[in-house]
């Protein structure tokens, strides 16, 4: 699964740590999602989308391997 989390974060100017605190996960988890090493649950994806006030599909999308 691909995501534009790093870009969204840059646009909104929030650090990994700030985002992590807001959605109650560890900073490592944000990092793992951004580097496509971890696929978040639906709940977490929805939380992230809600934080950036976007739809989940605007941030996360399927790639060829999914």
């Amino acid at each position: 699964m691909r995501n534009t989390l790093r870009v969204e974060r840059a646009i909104k100017n929030v650090t990994q740590a700030e985002l992590a605190e807001k959605i109650q996960v560890s900073r490592q988890t944000i990092n793992a999602i951004e580097s496509a090493k971890y696929v978040p649950s639906t709940v977490l994806a929805l939380k992230i989308a809600a934080f950036f006030e976007k739809k989940v599909e605007d941030i996360f999308s399927l790639d060829e391997t999914d």
């Binding site: 109650q24 996960v25 560890s26 490592q28 988890t29 649950s41 709940v43």
Partner: peptide
Amino acid sequence: AEKVEDERIQR
């Protein structure tokens, strides 16, 4: 639990 327990830690 870990200090920051989240779904990734659980996995």
